[in-house]
């Protein structure tokens, strides 16, 4: 079961622990969404946590030998293997009888999660290994210079989906990863946004209480990939939620809860602030809006249908 070292009490933002485990001095960009998220993740994880980090921006900017930003035991292996490394830690601590004293937290970007590490994650979730997998999702391979990943939204510019004379941006929809993970029926699945730190904090704390794997997908803006002024990271993370571009929900032992009701702001408000979407025509934006409305409606309807079915049983 979860660590009891610092009892979790859902409160307000002022109630967050003062203790820092992701220290300053790292090399992330000014306004980096993921770096803000790392601070929140480690605050929530607390001192009894072991971090497994996949290759990516957060690993690279925080551990230039001989320096480190991490105040927690931390390991990085490669790009696609954070989940099996976590499984190894889980098994070892279980064998030693000390598993209950620790939280194991995987931190990986969307490239590591949606794409290269996906099979390994799926297997770890099938095994039911207890750890919290957090995807910090900036919708591209930002570390290698903003290439398209499975999380990149349709139409978005990346360096491998450039705005050419014939083809403009990504041609296909992103992978519905959270729903794919949900199909594994692990105890806890959630989405979150960097703009809602308390929600993220509470979800991480909650994830530790389940006797099995948890998955949290956090949308977090990348200044260089999304192309916006570095002061706007949190604002964009909030606009994504308010426009419905990113639904914030959780599925707890099969039960769906939409944690934050989208404000129904037009998606244009979100897209217009980002250079990666500046090539969009009005027709493109209308298509995105239509697709988004349909997709969100379907997701909520499907999940509520499952909720009802479970209630009946």
């Amino acid at each position: 079961m979860a660590s009891k070292s610092d009892d979790w009490k859902p409160g307000n933002i002022r109630g967050l622990p003062l203790e820092e485990f992701f220290h300053s001095g790292h090399g992330a960009c000014a306004g980096c969404g993921p770096a803000i998220t790392m601070r929140m993740i480690t605050k929530a994880a607390g001192k009894d946590s072991i971090i497994v980090n996949a290759t990516g921006c957060m690993e690279v900017v925080s551990t230039k030998y001989p320096t480190t930003s991490w105040g927690l035991p931390w390991v990085h292996g490669a790009f696609e293997n954070a989940a099996p490394i976590a499984s190894g830690i889980h098994a070892a601590l279980a064998a030693q009888g000390t598993r209950a004293k620790h939280n194991i937290v995987v931190i990986a970007g969307d490239g590591a999660t949606y794409d290269i590490g996906f099979g390994a994650i799926s297997a770890a979730f099938e095994r039911g290994d207890k750890f919290t997998y957090i995807c910090y999702n900036n919708e591209a391979y930002a570390n290698t210079g903003s290439q398209q990943s499975g999380a990149t939204p349709k139409h978005a510019w990346t360096t491998t989906t450039p705005i050419g004379k014939i083809i403009h941006g990504k041609e296909v929809e992103k992978k519905p990863l959270t729903e794919i993970i949900a199909a594994h029926k692990i105890p806890y699945i959630a989405t979150a946004s960097t703009a809602y730190p308390l929600d993220l904090f509470n979800k991480i704390k909650k994830s530790f209480t389940f006797d099995g794997p948890s998955f949290i997908n956090v949308l977090t803006p990348c200044v260089l990939t999304w192309k916006y002024d570095s002061s706007l990271s949190v604002e964009l993370a909030r606009l994504a939620v308010d426009t419905g571009m990113w639904l914030v929900y959780e599925i707890e032992n099969g039960k769906f809860t939409l944690n934050i009701q989208p404000k129904g702001l037009p998606v244009k408000n979100y897209l217009a602030k980002q250079g990666r979407f500046k090539h969009l025509t009005d027709a493109d934006i209308a298509e995105i809006q239509m697709h988004l409305d349909k997709q969100n409606k379907e997701l909520v309807a499907e999940r509520e249908c499952v909720n009802k079915a479970e209630e009946k049983i």
């Binding site: 292996g77 099996p84 190894g88 830690i89 098994a91 064998a95 030693q96 297997a123």
Partner: peptide
């Protein structure tokens, strides 16, 4: 503890975790 993985890549990777955890 036996960990039945989905590939040798993951199999070898679990060793990183288990050995570093002691």
């Amino acid at each position: 503890k036996i960990i039945r993985t989905e590939s040798e890549h993951s199999m070898m990777s679990t060793l990183i975790g288990s050995l570093l955890a002691g």
